[in-house]
Nucleic acid binder design. Structure first.
Lengths: 248, 248
DNA sequence: GCTCATACCGTGGTATTACCACTTTGACAA
DNA sequence: TTGTCAAAGTGGTAATACCACGGTATGAGC
């Protein structure tokens, strides 16, 4: 029997989804900690009553989103997720959209404002040292859009780290790739303007000082100012570009 | 030959990665637009010189990260990515870290503060209408932790939408699942406290009023206050719980 | 007795084949 | 002209066999 059967209606969804949901539950419920080895593919297949290819598809999918890591000859292990990978996903997804590159600035402001508040309360001496190091790097590289952009990004990343908030750090990591691109583009546009070096160096120095002094309100105000002036420079650079292009 | 050969060094990586990279390139380079149908699995298999299971694994992986959609009986189509799906990923990843459930509040504050500022500048009449509707829903459901929590979340989600920032919306969507859980848990803890209804209803009403008045500073202040009072209630509820448990 | 090399075993990696299920489309009949 | 159904195309699953890599245990050699 079973062949021409009218089909059991109370049956579960498709095999793949079923298995995926099963493993997903195991992960979410915490029954599996990072580093744990999953059951072998063959074992999973017989246990869940599906074929090995299906199991493999599920595992590949989980590996694609970074939840597990498949190691040849060893097994599949639960991964301590690294959010930096989400950056790749975001980039891959946003690659098709486009206009978002400007908009990412809004998210950056949101994250950094909160981060700097937390940093004022939670930053350790190690964090402050890291910020100081990043600051010196910024000072050294003001003239180079490429390296300078990286240094700029690194400083702000250190700020996020000092906040000691995993979620904030995750979100930041997720858009890190885009942010880096944003940093670079913004740098390239304004690198020729007057007073830009002072803006870049002095503001970062003040930001660090505010965090070190644990003055959250002041730090927040400085950061807002930092972004506002940055936007102003962008506007000015755009105007400059328009004028020169219309002249040509 | 070939058997005992020293192995061709110029050879490519493993089949899966090779195929994955191939398709990935096609997607990123824009050769494939959203809505396009990929080649059938069998066709891809013969063209790339691998077996169909491998192709399926790649497609499943791509589907898992939301890049394509596999439709039974039709084919695999390139998707216009939807960031809401990242929420599941975030949830899976963050679920293993445990203490994050509290920390997600920091991200929420970060996103909403920025969102409400933008909303004050960008909200349309449609947005305001949606906020009004959400507000009424909040008023109606203050007494129920479950439904009320959902309504609460919906109101704040409407706030994000009114900001018209794709990136902010994406980040919010990414942590939406966690936020909903957070909303529910917080509700359950404080639902018995005095004055809680006034807090829930009145604050949301004021927030909406501030956005409608396009008063960003006031809205921001109200929001901060909203969160601060929420935290205070949480603290009080915790103290209450401690007292009762020590008594028992 | 200790160390190193080798063989074995467990596990993922891939291929092959066959068949089922869903979706679409076009042909046929009313 | 329209509705129904059948066929073709495509994803979904299963079963099986064999290869490739990692780790461990076992043996030989020192």
């Amino acid at each position: 029997m079973g062949a021409g059967l009218t089909r059991e209606p109370a049956e579960e969804a498709t095999g793949y989804d079923q298995v995926f949901a099963f493993v997903r539950e195991q992960l979410l419920s915490g029954q599996m900690k990072a580093g744990d080895r999953l059951l072998p593919e063959r074992e999973l297949a017989t246990r869940l009553g599906v074929s090995r290819p299906v199991i493999r598809e599920v595992l590949r999918a989980l590996a694609a989103i970074g939840v597990i890591e498949i190691r040849h000859g060893y097994g599949s292990v639960v991964r301590r997720p690294d959010f930096a990978e989400l950056g790749d996903l975001f980039t891959m997804m946003l690659a098709q959209q486009g206009e978002v590159v400007e908009d990412v600035m809004e998210a950056r402001i949101a994250i950094e404002r909160q981060a700097i508040r937390l940093a004022c309360a939670r930053a350790t001496s190690t964090d402050l040292a890291a910020l100081g190091k990043a600051l010196r790097r910024v000072e050294e590289t003001v003239t180079d859009p490429q390296i300078g952009g990286d240094a700029d990004f690194a400083f702000h990343a250190a700020l996020i780290a000092a906040a000691h908030s995993p979620t904030l750090a995750s979100l930041h990591a997720a858009i890190a790739v885009l942010l880096k691109r944003s940093h670079l583009e913004r740098r390239e546009r304004i690198t020729s303007l007057d007073g830009i070096e002072t803006y870049l160096v002095e503001h970062h120095r003040e930001l660090l000082a505010a965090v070190a002094a644990r003055d959250a309100d002041s730090a927040d105000r400085l950061l807002m100012q930092h972004f506002a002036i940055g936007t102003e420079y962008q506007r000015r650079a755009a105007a400059e570009r328009d004028r020169s292009s219309s002249t040509s």
